[in-house]
Design a protein around this nucleic acid. Sequence first.
DNA 1: GCGATGTATAGTTAATCTCTATCGCAGACA
DNA 2: TGTCTGCGATAGAGATTAACTATACATCGC
Lengths: 305, 305
Amino acid sequence: MTLTDLRYLVALARERHFGHAAERCNVSQPTLSVAIKKLEDELAVTLFERSAADVKITDIGARIVAQAEKVLLEAGQIKELATAGRDPLSGPLKLGVIYTIGPYLLPHLIPRVHEAAPSMPLLIQENYTARLAESLKRGDLDVIVVALPFEEPGIVTQAVYDEPFRVLMPAGHAWEKDESISAVRLAEAPLLLLGAGNCFRDQVLEVCPMCRSGEGLQRTLEGSSLETIRHMVATGAGITVLPSSAADPLPGGNSLLTVRPFEAPEPFRRIALAWRVTYPRSGAIDVIRSAILGSPLQGVRPVTR
Amino acid sequence: MTLTDLRYLVALARERHFGHAAERCNVSQPTLSVAIKKLEDELAVTLFERSAADVKITDIGARIVAQAEKVLLEAGQIKELATAGRDPLSGPLKLGVIYTIGPYLLPHLIPRVHEAAPSMPLLIQENYTARLAESLKRGDLDVIVVALPFEEPGIVTQAVYDEPFRVLMPAGHAWEKDESISAVRLAEAPLLLLGAGNCFRDQVLEVCPMCRSGEGLQRTLEGSSLETIRHMVATGAGITVLPSSAADPLPGGNSLLTVRPFEAPEPFRRIALAWRVTYPRSGAIDVIRSAILGSPLQGVRPVTR
DNA sequence: GCGATGTATAGTTAATCTCTATCGCAGACA
DNA sequence: TGTCTGCGATAGAGATTAACTATACATCGC
């Protein structure tokens, strides 16, 4: 019993004439004749009474035809589902973002994605890189926004933008007079750092090797966020390093804080999209990338492919 | 897209492993692999993300699998319908009976058929032979009980029983003294006859050729029934001829009437079953025949095949 | 009985399904 | 870093099935 057989069956039930039904199915009369016979043999019931005058459907035949129509209808739904699902911009996209990007990117990203792909709602999760990577590999996430380097088997990445680091200090700090800050000086001040697991913590420590070895005055705030640290800097608890997208929007609205760039070579982080190499909705990823690049993130430089 | 493809699809969705899914479907792994790929090509969507680690279903894939399960379920219903419908004694049987048999046969027939085939309800229609024949050919009836001769293209008949004719007269009638009546004498009495269209009318007229030619005293009662005629005989309006099944049960309960057989050769009618030669439920017909022969019809003689 | 109509069958060709064998990729491990 | 292993994809052959054309067969109406 195949779907084709059922189509023949339904056609014959409608036409009550082998020749006409065959024509409607674009096959020859013997084809239809044989198919119906095969069906009858397989089901071991007589579906039609054939006679020279006409073709009559049996009671059981009528019931089976009704069921066959239901089957064909449901099968047709598969094609419709496929057609609807063919658009990579249709259906929800599960997006992961690291903690140190989410608050600054998402408010811009979400409306832009919604505009570019109205039928692609975003399901967003913020987390540490490691957790995002795990979810991505499991299939719980489709695309993630992380800082490079990011190497995982079966995962491909695409750099989107570079983001320079900034030094954040309380207004009136001694370094305020300097146009830019040298990285080595970070060890001289009480440096507030995110807790372990945040990739940005590691990147900052890389900028200041002495801090990593514990020779500086740095202080780790476990379970904290860049926003918390910023508030602590404002109260004079120390200085910190922020990515430009988090640091640059501030001065206009916060006179308690001063932002300074690093001396060249300016330290920066490279932000990328990552997805499973097998992920089929590449169009959706393109939309995300465009939306990110279209977002007004302060100080960032797009990475041309 | 075939039902087999959908079975493979569902199996793979369950197993998430081409090899295991193939095993469960009793096919080789390449078979399943190719079938899934074919489905994906046909639907133009990616149903699964394959990687060395595992097989992940896509969102659209999951929706299509759910739909495929529905299709397979409905398709399975077809087999169940067929199994249920395979029994010829299952499902209603549309039975037609001529007017001059129905009242005497059906009260016996119905309970017997119900006992022999409890899941075969009878849908009964009483009518003239011509109307029954028409309905039978149209498919509105499955089997009819008629008197022979009955010849119709595409229709086969099977004689069931012979039924002798009787003369019915009012009690005290001059012929009451005779053991049996000669057919020729029917023209001498006011003979009450059914209206045109009743085959029994014609059969009676055949017994008495003089009546047919209008030389007798016969009187036709259009739109009447044997029962009406019997009551008229009881009131002395004339005599009549009845089939034994209608005539013989009477005397015990009706002292106003007298029944006499004909002289040999006794005129009789042959009652038969008729059905379309293409009608598949021969088992149902056998049940009807047996039930008729098992009915206590007075005076009838079974016709051995 | 014969022609017209309509279904079933025969025989052939083409498509397809399924198989075995093997490739190629990616992750795991030493 | 090279090798091993598990697993899906691919190639090619063989078998099955589905379709066609031609024709046989059955029935009905004239």
